[in-house]
Structures are given as C-alpha cells and as structure tokens.
Design a binder for these strands. Structure first.
Length: 243
DNA sequence: TATAATGTTTGAAC
DNA sequence: AGTTCAAACATTAT
C-alpha cells in the first residue's frame, strides 16, 4: 500500500466524494470521529505517504504505515478504523494511523518536499542533502522531509538506475550523480504510479527483490543498510561506492 | 507455518 | 543530552 504513488492512486479513486457531505461516520479510530459528521469535504490532498481529507478548519491525516488498506463502496469483514458514509457511497479505511491537524493544512506541510507534488523543488532537496554529507544515501532517500513519498522500493530502484551504491556517503557523491538521483526519484515515482495503476509494478523492478544484476549478470547483494536498516538490493560491480 | 515485508512513532536504555 | 534500540501497531504473501 504505502509509498507515495499508491497514495496518489487513493486520492484519484475518491474524487467522486470531493465536495460531498459526510452523513455518517464510524470506526475504531481514537480520534473524535463524530467531529466529521455532517461536515463537507473541501478537498483531498496528499503529501508523500500522507492522505489528507481537508475540511474548512481542520484536516484528517491518514497514514497507511506498512499494512493499511481501504475500500471504496465496499467493506472488508473487519471493523474499519474509519468509515465515511456519503449520500451515494462510502470509504472505509483499515489498519492505518489517523490524526487530526488543526487549521490550514498549508501550515502543516511544505509541498516543495513532495516528489510528486506540482510544487516539488529539486533545488531544495539538493540543499537539504548538502546539509547531511555524512549520512548514507540509502537513509537520505528515505528522509520524508527531503524526499516525501519515497519508500524502500523507490529507494532501491533509483539507486540501481543511477548506479550508486546505497552505502555511499551523501557528501562524497559527485554533484552530477546527486542531481540524477534527485531527478530519478521523481521520474521513477511517476513510472511507479503508471505501473501500479496497471497492476504491473513488480514486473518492472530491476533491483528490488531481485537476485541477479541484469547489467552484468553477477548476483545482487541483499543487505540491511544504513541507520534505518531497511533492506537494499544492489550490485557491487555496477553501483559505485563513494566513501 | 513461521517469517518477512512498500512504515513510523514512542519511550526505555545506554 | 544525544543516540540507539526494541516495542508497538497489525495484515498478508510466500
């Protein structure tokens, strides 16, 4: 479910309810869900992996974490964390984190940090990376305040495509490679979006979960890298280690 | 069937 | 005081 493109798909899938009034609400979320009853949804937004339901003076933030799911005009067997009922349909969210953000949503988010947002600012990402030269690039790509929306799959695919070893130190990577990593994080995120919509995402994985490098035919290394200790799949022959 | 996985926050321990 | 770490949350495919 989780990475940024999947949340964009969710946003597109619920557009039929934008501007609609919630006529009933239920679920086992710990937030005050009754607050949503009879309120009109002004807009759905996303910021990376955050799905945002915006009302006049507050926003419901939904994070799918690792296992979150949703159903539109359908129900699973289990009790939903949150169910929103409209005059002509409903949305059900399961196993997700839900929080309320007070006031203008723009005060909570910097849209320039979201790789899939129209306000994405690659120069800002570059400046942010310049501030963390000692971090490994595998950790930096997962920093949501630099590459909001990038998850572990996108990380592995971007590093493979750019031929950069995940344990490279940010400050040792040549500037042209940093720029290509920033660019590719956007390009691949939108490819991810298209492929996911067509149920063919995995078919296009070049490195993630793969056993062999398709460039040189040597085995890919699987290793839990960086301080975040997320699994990386990489080719020590084709991906350069800058240290 | 046990394990691991597209994630993040929290709070204890050092 | 800063870091590191495990725990917690919880589902599903292999």
């Amino acid at each position: 479910m989780p990475e940024g493109p999947s949340i964009v798909i969710l946003k597109e899938a619920v557009q039929q309810f934008s501007g609609q009034k919630i006529i009933d609400v239920s679920g086992n979320s710990s937030i005050d869900i009754l607050r949503l009853k009879k309120k009109t949804i002004r807009e759905f937004k996303t910021w990376g992996k955050h799905f945002l339901i915006c009302f006049d003076d507050f926003t419901v933030k939904i994070h799918m974490l690792m296992f979150g799911t949703y159903r539109i005009n359908e129900r699973k067997e289990t009790v939903p964390r949150l169910r929103l009922v409209f005059a002509d349909g409903e949305i059900n969210f399961y196993t997700c984190s839900i929080k309320i953000l007070e006031g203008d949503v723009n005060l909570h988010y910097d849209w320039e940090e979201d790789v899939m947002n129209e306000n994405w600012n690659p120069e800002k990402a570059k400046r942010s990376l310049d501030k963390i030269p000692k971090q490994m690039i595998c950790d930096a790509l997962l920093e949501q305040n630099i590459f909001s929306g990038v998850g572990n799959i996108i990380k592995n695919e971007v590093l493979y495509r750019c031929k950069i070893h995940p344990e490279s130190r940010v400050g040792k990577i040549p500037e042209k490679d940093i720029v290509s990593l920033i660019d590719e994080s956007v390009v691949y995120s939108f490819q991810f979006l298209d492929w996911k919509k067509n149920y063919e995402l995995k078919k296009h994985w070049l490195a993630h979960t793969k056993k062999t490098c398709l460039r040189c035919d040597l085995p890919l290394v699987k290793k839990y890298t960086g301080t975040k200790k997320r699994r990386s799949f990489f080719c020590t022959n084709c991906q350069k280690l800058h240290q």
